[in-house]
Simulated assay, not measured.
Amino acid sequence: MSRSAPQKALTAADIRARKGATPLVCLTAYTTPVARLADAECDVVLVGDSVGMVLHGLPSTLPVTMEMMILHGQAVARGLDRALMVVDMPFASYEEGPAQAFRNAARLMAETGAGAVKLEGGRTMAETIATLVQRGIPVMAHIGLTPQSVNALGGYRVQGKGADADRIRDDARAVAEAGAFSVVLEKVPAALADQITAEIAIPTIGIGASAGCDGQILVIDDMLGLFDAFKPKFVKRYAHLAADAAGAIRAYAEEVRARDFPAPEHVFTDEGKI
């Protein structure tokens, strides 16, 4: 896609209106070059707090800071023309209450140019979501497996099995009624995801959920095969760039050691030619 003719950027209202229509395509991005690639195909580009694990080598998303999210949000914004940019609110930036959440969400929006923020939690976050929306900050909700609560959940386990389905269903209803424009369903049984998609009026975006959701999201480094510290069941590798990069680095190292690189075409002469 040519970037010489910018398109109208999608808004949270545009995404909300896609309920039941062509599935929404969503990916994470953390840098300008990757954002440019994602913008060509995606409706939503999420600056996820997964950046902590993917790019910074952290053991979880919990140590991610507001400053990290702002830095990467600013980078991603430079690469987008069309997709809605959503920025994750990091752990401990909103759980204290609506006032704290508004203060930090407003900062994220103002300093990154994001079109929306994302926060984790269902019924317990309904009041906070309503406060943000009433004050002009679009919110994408996130329920099911919520990585910022991984310690309380006992690990990265499927949520909503059996009798626990009612809890997830109630969370979905609560965030929709509070005014969220969409909701991420992470690592929940497919049948439950389908039920929630049919029951609520806002788009559901699945990750480890169901093809019946109104959209799908993956961490881009997972689906490109760049981040291979672990591979969740719900990730499909559409490329194997880590292996390709390792092969390229190996070839480069071999040529340097053999003095095959740089070759004559890669060096300069005293004839003034470049």
Rank of each mutant, 00 (worst) to 15 (best):
S2R: 09
K8R: 12
A9K: 13
A21I: 15
V25R: 14
C26E: 15
L27V: 07
A35K: 01
D43G: 02
V45K: 02
V47K: 03
D49Q: 00
L55Q: 07
H56P: 06
G57A: 04
S60M: 01
L62S: 05
I70N: 00
A77D: 06
D81I: 03
D81L: 08
M85Q: 08
M85I: 05
M85F: 03
P90N: 03
E96A: 14
A99H: 13
N104G: 07
N104P: 08
R107H: 07
L108T: 03
A116E: 01
K118L: 05
G121V: 01
G122A: 08
M125Q: 12
M125P: 05
T131E: 14
V133D: 06
Q134H: 10
Q134D: 10
G136C: 07
M140L: 15
L145D: 05
L145V: 04
Q148A: 03
S149P: 06
G154M: 05
G154D: 11
V158A: 13
I168H: 07
I168P: 00
D170W: 14
A172S: 06
A174K: 02
A174L: 00
E177L: 11
A178D: 01
S182T: 07
V183R: 00
L185E: 02
A190G: 03
L192Y: 03
L192G: 01
D194F: 05
I196A: 01
G208T: 04
A209I: 08
S210V: 03
G212Y: 06
C213R: 00
L224Y: 14
A229Y: 11
F230N: 08
F234G: 04
L241K: 14
A245V: 14
G247P: 06
R250D: 15
Y252T: 11
D260H: 15
T269A: 13
D270H: 15
E271S: 10
E271L: 11
G272K: 15
